[in-house]
């Protein structure tokens, strides 16, 4: 289903959910939960947005049933740790590549995905200062290295 324009800002989190459907369904579930919560704040009144959000809710309810034997789904405190660990793993991989001077698409994507998953952590409560800083750094690095590779410059 096409994403209505007012909900555009959740498109990257929904894409991350799709990419993790098989690899890590817990990540996919919480990305969609974040998208749902954010989408409801953005626009849940216009018919096209409401229709989209109802479908997303259907999907979340189905996923919750399918994953009912996972503690990361039934206990949000476990889910919080799962998403945080996953985000930091992505961040550390990209940071290690960066410090080793290995600049490539995969590490850019890892920095960006880490920043999206740090957004997702907000479904569990306020982000820690450390996570806010990691998110800012990861997003900036992803943009900076992407632009360098595009223009043929070597990132510093």
């Amino acid at each position: 289903m096409a994403l209505p324009a007012p909900l555009r800002s959740i498109q990257h989190h929904l894409r991350t959910a799709n990419e993790h459907e098989k690899r890590d369904p817990v990540v996919a579930y919480y990305c969609r939960l974040y998208a749902m919560q954010t989408g409801m704040k953005l626009d849940s009144k216009t018919p096209e947005c409401r229709k989209f959000l109802v479908k997303l809710m259907d999907q979340l309810e189905t996923m919750k049933k399918e994953l009912s034997d996972s503690d990361s789904i039934t206990q949000e405190v476990v889910g919080n740790a799962h998403i945080e660990n996953y985000a930091l793993k992505m961040f550390l991989y990209a940071d290690n590549e960066d410090r080793g001077g290995r600049f490539h698409k995969n590490m850019i994507k890892s920095f960006y995905t880490a920043s999206l998953l740090l957004d997702v952590l907000s479904v569990f409560g306020e982000l820690s200062e450390e996570n806010i800083q990691h998110r800012k750094y990861a997003r900036w690095k992803a943009t900076y290295i992407h632009n360098c590779l595009k223009s043929g410059e070597t990132p510093q």
């Binding site: 939960l33 409801m40 409401r50 959000l53 809710m57 309810e61 919750k64 039934t74 206990q75």
Partner: peptide, 27 residues
């Protein structure tokens, strides 16, 4: 008509909020 449609929208919105609360109820 506009108050009726806004009332329908608000009811559907509440329903969505309720579903979200139920979804997040810890088992």
């Amino acid at each position: 008509t506009s108050s009726l449609s806004s009332s329908v929208a608000s009811t559907e919105q509440d329903e969505l909020s309720q579903r979200l609360s139920r979804l997040r109820d810890q088992v």
